[in-house]
Write a protein that binds this DNA or RNA. Structure first.
Lengths: 340, 340
DNA sequence: GACTGGCACTCACTAGTTGGGAGTGCCAGT
DNA sequence: ACTGGCACTCCCAACTAGTGAGTGCCAGTC
């Protein structure tokens, strides 16, 4: 059955009121607060239909209605317009991010900013290495048989690793190794380097094969294969706001899921830039997050995606507001990365 | 009034039972579970005294007794012996830490390990820069007017920063700057470097003064003055275990405090190695943590302290066990740092 | 046919009541 | 100094209305 204009309007009103008050909303209150030009009885008929279609439900026989996950979904897809941010909010974002001194600081500030603006739990993925390109490799001799390898990514991220060499090495040879490595790898996307790294061994002068082998082994292990990606989290205290009504009473599973970085990374597995993905309640693949909703998007310089960010909260959340905020923050951070 | 042997024994029994059951403990149950060789009536008399002295209290008139913060304090100081860890636990610690690839990984693993072993919230401070000594500085030319400064600390921690130079610079000059900086700063504790960094400018050849000035400004700002220190956190889900009885019902303030890194850093402000500090409930200076207890200690290679670690949980926690675990983990991590 | 007013009905929530029981404090006795 | 006994306190769980918000349905109106 197609839902006519007014029924949709009723659904929107229910979602908005329920999000605001956290209480089941009844027909009378609805008519009063939104100026629907019909009587409560009419609204009740509409509600009956909406319930039949699975968009709302009654917690118990004589209570008001509450949106279902499907109801929120319809609301997000069809009934809500993204709220443009206020001037004040835009300025707050700029001011908050402007002072960042390095990449870690950007991420750190971003996640706190998101948590503060949305009053939800915020999650930001550190710019991922595998999607980044290499700006420079530096080899720093620590002793005659030890070198520290430092990789600087285009995003500003720095990774370093100690390498034990099979035998002592001369300063000039280190210079040569540095030259070869940089020549072959700079400008490449990290995800595409493994064959190049292997080729490095062939590339090296015969006398340099042993140290180069040690080096490339470490490079492969730690810089390429290691998909380890970090996550920053903030605003977990916001979970405890909704008086335990949200998340059906127990924060435990949510907090547990948030500590599993693997789970969080999975959420960002398929993020795309300028597309904001919303996962509502049951739509989440992760069991423990079935009582929560997630608004996530990708970010990065220009149209590139180097990571994801988003917020997590009760299904009863301000979707239009949160979507707008996440989107805006992601764009600002993207611009920031593009500059550096 | 001095408390005789048996009264102390009663207090210990109350603490142990309450920690185990989370329920007020009565005289009868006490006599049954611990083989005190007296009648419940006698125990009641002892309890009355303990209550008068402020070590235990009654939630309401006809309920059992619960330890007060002072009671826990006495228990920790006088009545409990640190439980030695089991072989299995020791092995678990070793196995868990052995695979760490770098400093970040060590901290990360440590905090998860602590959370898992104690089933509390674990907090680990990243080895602090200001107490660390400098191993090496590396200057990496990014363009003719930009240099990346990389500092490697003795603990393995790496910090990097981009520096914009007032004008273009030659490769040889970079080499010279690198030489001077390393000559003056390597081996110094970071906290003691500010005067040395300033002296660097005098030290440089006249032609190199401008770039050296830019460099030393950045060095001062970011590596020395910046006391920013990072914190790793794990096991927040454990807060939600005690069925909301702990923390008088609201996790909110605790979660908020845990997100304030400043607060956590303060906890570690005065840590000492091989001294395990226990803060019980009201003893905490931070308002929001008055319903929690903290077991913390310093760690570092040998007798040096480079950071703190500890666990936080309800005042009703297993002090002997947690103290033992924190201590053991701190020692293992210290040894690990000493090796590298 | 769409909407409305009216009405009986449902059922969570609150407040008040009650009985049971765990635990205490006190006292007299050993 | 310790114990058994006993009266007392008071939380808690179970039960009982009473209340009211909200519903579903129906007959009537435009």
């Amino acid at each position: 059955m197609a839902l006519d204009e007014r029924k949709l309007e009723v659904l929107r009103a229910i979602v908005e009121d329920y999000v605001a008050t956290q209480e089941p909303v009844g027909s009378k209150a609805l008519v009063e607060r939104h100026n629907l030009r019909v009587s409560p009885a009419t609204v009740r008929n509409d509600m009956a239909v909406l319930e039949e279609e699975g968009y709302i439900r009654q917690p118990h026989t004589s209570a008001g209605r509450v949106p279902t996950d499907a109801g929120y979904r319809l609301f997000v897809d069809k009934l809500s317009r993204v709220k443009p941010l206020s001037q004040a909010e835009r300025r707050a974002i700029e001011r908050f991010l402007i002072g960042a001194v390095d990449l870690d600081d950007v991420v750190h500030r971003t996640v706190r900013l998101l948590a503060q603006l949305t009053r939800q739990v915020a999650v930001v993925q550190y710019p991922s290495l595998s999607r980044a390109t290499v700006r420079h490799f530096e080899l720093v001799p620590i002793s005659t048989t030890r070198i520290m390898v430092v990789m600087i990514a285009e995003t500003g991220r720095v990774e370093q690793r100690l390498v034990d060499l099979p035998g002592p090495i001369l300063a000039d040879d280190v210079t040569e190794l540095r030259r070869v490595i940089n020549e072959k790898l700079v400008g490449q996307r990290l995800a595409e380097t493994p064959p190049l790294v292997l080729a490095l061994i062939e590339e090296a002068a015969p006398g340099l094969r042993p140290p180069m082998t040690a080096l490339s082994t470490v490079l492969l292990e730690t810089l390429v294969e290691r998909t380890e990606e970090r996550i920053a989290l903030a605003g977990t205290a916001n979970l405890a706001r909704g008086g335990l009504l949200d998340f059906q009473g127990s924060l435990r599973p949510i907090l547990e899921a948030l500590e599993e970085e693997v789970i969080l990374l999975k959420l960002f597995g398929e993020v795309e830039p300028s597309i904001t993905r919303v996962r509502i309640g049951d739509e989440n693949e992760i069991e423990d997050l079935r009582t929560a909703s997630i608004v996530a998007t990708g970010y990065g310089p220009g149209s590139m995606v180097v990571g994801g960010m988003g917020v997590l909260g009760p299904t009863r959340m301000d979707y239009p507001g949160n979507i707008a905020t996440v989107r805006a923050v992601a764009r600002y951070v993207g611009d920031l990365l593009a500059q550096s």
